[in-house]
Amino acid sequence: MRSRNGNRSISLSICSIIFFSSLALNAGEYLISYRYVVKDAILYNESLSVAKAMKRCDGIPQAAIELETNSSSDLKKIITENSDEFIDYIHKLGMHVKHSDITMNAQYKSTTILTLKTTCFKVDFNDNFARIIPLK
């Protein structure tokens, strides 16, 4: 009896180790930045940069977002497929607004730059969803 129970606990622990290690393998930390420029009320330039972090990030996890992966593990592709949802979410995190305008001899010119400064995100890839958690 004892040996049977002992075997069970060992197998259970092995299974749990495999499960958690597989989860850990599918998780990653990414650095994301976003910036767009509006000149005279017209969108001029927009850029979203995604890169895998080369060292561990520190920070407190913030509100997460879940995006559909369609069995892909490429974060850039996932974000591009769900760009509207992700950009709306990014705006909520806090955007740096820099605006300047000039009126010279009654002629008006304006430039507005919205930036999400490079932020570390922890990403967990599941079967159908990627859970993206910002660390701040």
Binding site: H96, K98, H99, S100, D101, I102
Partner: peptide
């Protein structure tokens, strides 16, 4: 005549 305005904030 020149008027410059600028705004800098985090929203």
């Amino acid at each position: 005549s020149t008027i410059r305005t600028c705004v800098d904030a985090v929203i």
